[in-house]
Each structure stands twice: as structure tokens, then as C-alpha cells.
Computed example of a mutant assay.
Amino acid sequence: MSATDVRPDRERIVEAADRLFNARGVQAVGMDAVRAASGVPLKRLYAAFSSKDDLVLAVLRRREGTWGEGIAATAAGATGARERLLAVYDFLDAWFRSDDFRGCGFINTYGELGGVSPEVADAVRTQKLSFQRYVAALVDELGAPPALAAQLALLAEGAQTTAAIDGRPDAAAQARAAAEVLIDAALRPPR
């Protein structure tokens, strides 16, 4: 931490924890590592977050904001619902190619803590439901059958997992191509 860093403790702590959790996993990172990475003394760290679970939840809230802002920014130039739906996969493509991509932080955290922390499980479910609602609203705007929303959301989730496990950023392009086929089929008039 530099002497000129005046960000509030809480912000520095969450940012440092997010980086560490993403790189190493939640359970592998202790509060002392977060203290060292954030530059916030342990006493002030615990004043900001009474437990590691509270910190994990704050990191998930931060990631939810980052996710939503990233999709919105990528979709900003889109001219219609179809293009905004496909922008999800364009966002994923850029994210998968970033140096710090280690998979979905929500999925990863759920895998580590979802079975033992109802609060973490709820936070992950809330984010996934929020994304599904976003997709459903665009599908509705498009005038396509509601079932398309679940299919497109599953493609996005599957692309995240595939890209993380296989290390293949092209999973986003493959998911986008499949999404185009699904969208076109859903909009095709019945015979």
C-alpha cells in the first residue's frame, strides 16, 4: 500500500481479498494474508469484517457489481434485445482472455463453501437468479418463448466452467454460436 492510498479500509480489504480468493481459493487464504495484501492492520480489518464469512460475502457482492457492470458496458452499443443477449457471450470472451480469469468466483466459492455456509449459498443463488432474470427480460423483449432464457443462461454458465477447466477462452465464442442458433430457432415461425 502506498502512503497516498486514501481509499477506505473496507474497500482495500475487499479488493485484496477478491484478488487473493480468485488466485488461491477462499479456504487457502487466511485473514493475515488479506491483512498483508490490503495493508490494513488486523485490528482494523476485524473492525470492518467481524468474520471471514462476512468478508467472503462482501467479495461476492463486489463481484456481482463487476459482473453486472461488465455485461452492461459490453451491451451498451447493442441496438436490440438479440444483440444484448449475444453481448453476454462477448463479455465472457473478453473476461476469459484476461490474465486473472480463474473461472466464476460464484461457482468457485459455492464449490468451496456452499455446503457449509447457507449465507454463501444464498448469495451465489441470488447472483445466478439475477443473471437469469436479466436474460429472461431480454428474451421477453425479443418476443421469444420463456424457455429460451434458461437455455441461454446455461450456455453462459457452461462456457465459464469450460473456459476455467480447459483453459480455452474460445468457449465463449462456441457458446455465442450456439446461442445464435437457439435464438434463431426460437424466433422461427412455426410450420
Rank of each mutant, 00 (worst) to 15 (best):
V26C: 12
I13A: 03
D170I: 03
A58M: 05
L182R: 06
P118E: 13
W67H: 11
A178P: 03
L142V: 05
F96A: 01
D166E: 03
F49D: 08
P118M: 03
A78D: 00
A150H: 10
D93H: 11
G103H: 04
W95G: 00
E180A: 08
G25W: 13
L138S: 06
R102Y: 04
G143R: 02
G70W: 00
D100S: 12
D140F: 06
K52R: 15
P146E: 03
A33Q: 15
I13K: 02
L154E: 12
S117T: 01
R82L: 05
P41G: 15
D18E: 15
P169V: 04
L154I: 01
M31Q: 11
V40N: 14
L57T: 07
V56E: 00
L45M: 07
L187Q: 10
D93L: 05
A144G: 02
F101I: 05
N22Q: 12
A159N: 12
A121C: 03
G114D: 01
R7D: 02
A94P: 01
M1I: 11
A76E: 14
G105T: 04
E119F: 04
G158N: 09
V116Y: 01
N22A: 12
D32I: 14
T126H: 10
A137G: 10
E83R: 02
W67A: 01
A178D: 11
R84Y: 02
D100M: 09
V26Y: 10
I107C: 04
S2G: 12
A179S: 09
T161V: 15
G77Q: 07
A177H: 11
G80L: 06
A149G: 07
L155H: 05
R84G: 02
L129G: 04
A123F: 02
A150F: 08
I71A: 06
L57H: 09
D5N: 15
R24N: 12
R168P: 00
P146L: 08
V181S: 03
Q160C: 14
A78C: 13
L182K: 05
R84L: 00
V34C: 00
A153N: 10
P145V: 12
A179I: 09
P118L: 05
I107L: 10
L129A: 09
T4C: 04
E180G: 11
G39Q: 03
S38W: 08
G77V: 06
P8M: 13
A72H: 07
A23W: 09
K52G: 06
